[in-house]
Amino acid sequence: MIDWNQIRTVLLDMDGTLLDLHYDTYFWLTHLPTRYAEVRGLPHEKARDEIHRTIQGLRGSLDWYCLDYWSNRLDMDVGALKSEVQERIGFRAGAQHFLRELRDSHRRVVIVTNAHQTGLDLKIHRTGLDQWVDTIHTTHSFGRPKEDPAFWPELQAQEPFEPEQSLLIDDNHAALRAAETFGIRHLVSVRTPDSQQPPIPGAHWPAVEHFDELLPIGTPEPLY
């Protein structure tokens, strides 16, 4: 699936790629509506529908991922609410082994996530994810999400990489399309980002169920 000799930089999504998306799915579709209904004295279905409509209206924008936006919109500390169910945060199957193999291969490994810094800090605290990679970039530092093609040259200016020698693994098809438009050559999607949901159909790119499908990696040979 991947010719690792062509890869020098590995760009990794976090939620739904390295970490099980079940935590986020549960939070946004179950826990947040429940707590919102409690605070506002609303029927659960009404609270759920209101939040769902807002989610759909923001999809693909940076506000969709921004906990500050949601805290202001709902007049609740959404970052604190995310901590209430933090025990659900966890790696996808095989992710830690894959990260270990990447680290041992001496390639540059970079997480590129749409997660807000508050949520990112919580997940780092729970998983130690930052210990496995060279650095982590959140798109909130750039003011635009990965779905925006203009994000990728801005990332490259801060995190130099050669698109022809880079691999992006991401469960977000819109982000993969934007990266492809920018020129990132090696793209892989994730078949089942949420362990409690069915696989995502219709990936235009090679899709993996388990990271073992991308092994072995090995150390890179010189490129001429």
Rank of each mutant, 00 (worst) to 15 (best):
M1G: 14
M1A: 14
W4V: 01
R8C: 07
V10W: 00
L11N: 06
D13R: 06
D15L: 10
G16R: 03
G16E: 08
L18K: 04
L18M: 12
L19M: 12
D20K: 08
H22V: 09
T25V: 05
Y26R: 12
F27K: 06
L29R: 14
L29I: 05
T30R: 13
T30H: 11
T30C: 05
H31A: 14
L32M: 14
T34A: 15
R35Q: 15
R35I: 06
Y36M: 03
Y36K: 07
V39H: 10
R40P: 07
G41L: 09
G41V: 05
H44C: 02
H44M: 07
A47Y: 03
R48E: 13
D49V: 11
D49M: 13
E50G: 00
T54K: 15
G57N: 11
G57F: 06
L58K: 03
R59L: 05
G60N: 05
S61K: 09
L62S: 08
D63I: 00
W64S: 07
W64I: 03
Y65K: 01
C66H: 08
Y69I: 03
W70R: 04
N72Q: 14
R73I: 05
L74W: 05
L74A: 09
L74E: 12
D77L: 05
V78L: 09
L81W: 01
L81H: 01
L81G: 01
E84G: 07
V85Q: 04
Q86C: 13
A93R: 14
A93N: 10
Q96E: 15
H97P: 00
F98D: 02
R100E: 15
R100C: 07
E101Y: 04
R103E: 07
R103T: 09
D104G: 13
R108Q: 14
V112D: 01
H116F: 06
Q117E: 14
G119P: 01
D121L: 05
L122N: 09
R126T: 06
R126V: 07
D130P: 01
W132G: 00
W132F: 14
V133Y: 03
T135H: 12
H137Y: 15
T139Y: 03
H140M: 12
F142L: 13
G143S: 10
R144Y: 04
K146N: 09
D148L: 11
D148S: 11
D148A: 11
A150T: 13
F151Q: 02
F151E: 02
W152G: 03
W152F: 10
P153L: 10
P153G: 08
L155C: 01
L155H: 01
Q156I: 01
Q158R: 15
E159Y: 03
P160D: 05
F161S: 07
P163M: 10
P163V: 08
P163H: 12
E164S: 15
Q165M: 13
Q165A: 14
S166T: 15
L168D: 02
N172F: 10
L176C: 07
A178L: 04
A178Y: 02
A179S: 11
E180N: 14
E180G: 13
F182I: 12
V188H: 03
R191W: 08
R191H: 12
T192K: 15
P193G: 10
Q197F: 03
P198V: 13
P199L: 04
I200R: 11
I200W: 01
I200P: 00
H204C: 00
E209Y: 09
E209G: 08
E213I: 00
L215A: 02
P216I: 05
P216L: 12
G218I: 07
P220F: 05
Y224M: 03
